[in-house]
Design a protein around this nucleic acid. Structure first.
Lengths: 155, 155
DNA sequence: GTTGATTACTTGCAATCGAAACTAATGTAG
DNA sequence: CTACATTAGTTTCGATTGCAAGTAATCAAC
């Protein structure tokens, strides 16, 4: 532990900016989806991951990893999506501990309806403001920081 | 609106990594502070901002901006810090709508005790993993994305 | 094949949050 | 001076969260 105990001025300035971004950006995306589609960002991501899956279904634990949430949180998110008719849950016949979440037709329709607005919000908040070089830098930095925690991303 | 409707493959991959980071990093910092100091990240930031202020006090609305929270959320955060003895609230004599939050001695001691662990967590999660060039890139990107929403940062 | 550990998921509880409603003080227009 | 709008902050409500405890199925060891 020979690390300096505090951040140096450049690190400090960098951190304050990163921290601001880290708190404000999710809130921006959250409020757009909430206002326009009555969806949580987490709920959106669940639907997005399921809709992009070849089988349209996924086990809960994997879904939790893909959507960067805890298992308990995911459980409640999927419960809500199920109540709203966007997802169904079924036991896996091979391993009856496993629950497979499957997106419904209504869920596919919902994500199709919600995507343009959400993508526009992401564009407006991020990609419209960066040039290609910065996008590459940001992607590389994010992957480095995630390290081994980068969830496996379905094709 | 001639924007493409979806993200291109490079943007998409970049976004998935950024989004993962954006959800996981706050959770990491939150759990460290919670576990070791029984503090919220938001509560930590409030104490940090107050302790760095020359007068050791700050009006609620400015504090909300500095800590990237809504006014209503800040109100509850400060109420909790006050209950724990780290902050006091007083009416501003000049404008009696204004509330000045002031950090107490116990609050100063608390932030001093909490800072090393929190800084270590920030280092471990971010600065230890990036080289100087990447730190500069990340800072520049963050400031660009924040745009005019970069809160005024006290010296 | 029974016991104990592990894995997968859910749920109870207390705490927290965002949105909107609310109180109270100040500013402004006539 | 008297409305009316605006600003500052708090609070209420329903919903969400994390943690820890719970249920249930599978696995591993003997």
């Amino acid at each position: 532990m020979t690390e300096p105990q505090w951040l140096n001025p450049e690190e400090r300035r960098a951190w304050l900016a990163v921290a601001s971004l880290m708190f404000r950006l999710p809130a921006t995306l959250e409020s757009q989806l909430q206002r326009d589609e009555d969806l949580t960002v987490a709920g959106y991501m669940v639907l997005a991951m399921l809709s992009e899956s070849a089988t349209r279904e996924c086990r809960m634990s994997k879904l939790a990893e893909l959507t960067n949430t805890s298992q308990s949180r995911l459980s409640r998110i999927v419960a809500r999506l199920e109540k709203d008719g966007y997802v169904t849950r079924a036991m896996d016949a091979n391993d009856r501990r496993v629950v497979l979440a499957r997106i419904t037709e209504a869920g596919v329709a919902k994500i199709a309806a919600a995507a343009p607005g959400h993508v526009a919000a992401v564009r407006a908040a991020v990609f419209d403001r960066l040039d290609e070089e910065q996008v590459r830098q940001l992607a590389a930095i994010s992957r480095t920081l995630l390290g081994d925690e980068l969830p496996y991303l379905p094709e």
